[in-house]
Simulated scan of single mutants.
Amino acid sequence: METWVENQHFLQDVILLTGAIRRDSSKDWGYVASKVRGYLINVYNNDDPTLKKYFKLAEAGNNACGRKPIKEYHPKIINEDGTYLIGKTHKVSTALNYLPELVRKGLW
């Protein structure tokens, strides 16, 4: 994203689906959100078995933004619970089915 901004290219929205990135403040989510013109939308799935297992083993109890809301508040960060639609899977093809729901809700 920084390279894009340096080259005068801009992102309108960023949507994280099944994101295997730590959700805590070490990622400076507010800074990331400030670099997009629109919103940083984190679609998370509490029932994601892959992220639950990986982060329990490798990240010592931390959670991924694909499984929980991003902890940092910023007006451009939207945390959207997609658990009921995505279910107990980590398939990107299933997570993509949530995109029409973002449109229906007027978030994207």
Rank of each mutant, 00 (worst) to 15 (best):
C65N: 01
G66E: 01
G66M: 01
G66L: 01
G66P: 05
R67E: 03
R67H: 01
R67K: 05
K68L: 07
K68C: 06
K68S: 05
K68R: 10
P69K: 09
P69Y: 02
P69N: 10
P69H: 04
P69I: 06
P69C: 07
I70D: 09
I70P: 01
I70Y: 02
I70F: 02
K71T: 09
K71V: 07
E72V: 14
E72A: 12
E72C: 07
E72S: 13
Y73E: 13
Y73C: 12
Y73I: 11
Y73G: 07
Y73P: 04
Y73N: 10
Y73T: 14
Y73S: 12
H74K: 14
H74Y: 14
H74S: 12
P75L: 02
P75R: 14
P75K: 15
P75W: 06
K76T: 08
K76I: 08
K76G: 09
K76L: 12
K76A: 05
K76N: 11
I77G: 00
I77N: 03
I77Q: 11
I77Y: 02
I77M: 06
I77V: 10
I78N: 01
I78F: 05
N79E: 00
E80S: 12
D81A: 12
D81M: 15
D81T: 10
G82M: 03
G82V: 03
G82P: 05
G82Y: 10
G82L: 02
T83N: 10
T83G: 11
T83M: 08
T83A: 13
T83E: 12
Y84N: 10
Y84M: 08
Y84E: 14
L85M: 14
I86K: 01
G87T: 14
G87P: 10
K88C: 07
K88D: 01
K88M: 00
K88E: 07
K88L: 06
T89K: 03
T89F: 00
T89Y: 07
T89V: 01
H90W: 01
H90V: 07
K91P: 00
V92N: 13
V92L: 15
V92Q: 14
V92F: 15
V92S: 11
V92Y: 09
S93M: 06
S93Q: 13
S93F: 06
S93N: 11
S93W: 03
T94V: 15
A95G: 10
A95C: 11
A95R: 01
A95Y: 14
L96S: 02
L96M: 09
L96E: 10
L96T: 05
L96Y: 13
L96R: 12
N97S: 15
N97E: 14
Y98D: 02
Y98R: 00
Y98T: 06
L99V: 15
L99G: 12
L99T: 04
L99I: 15
L99K: 08
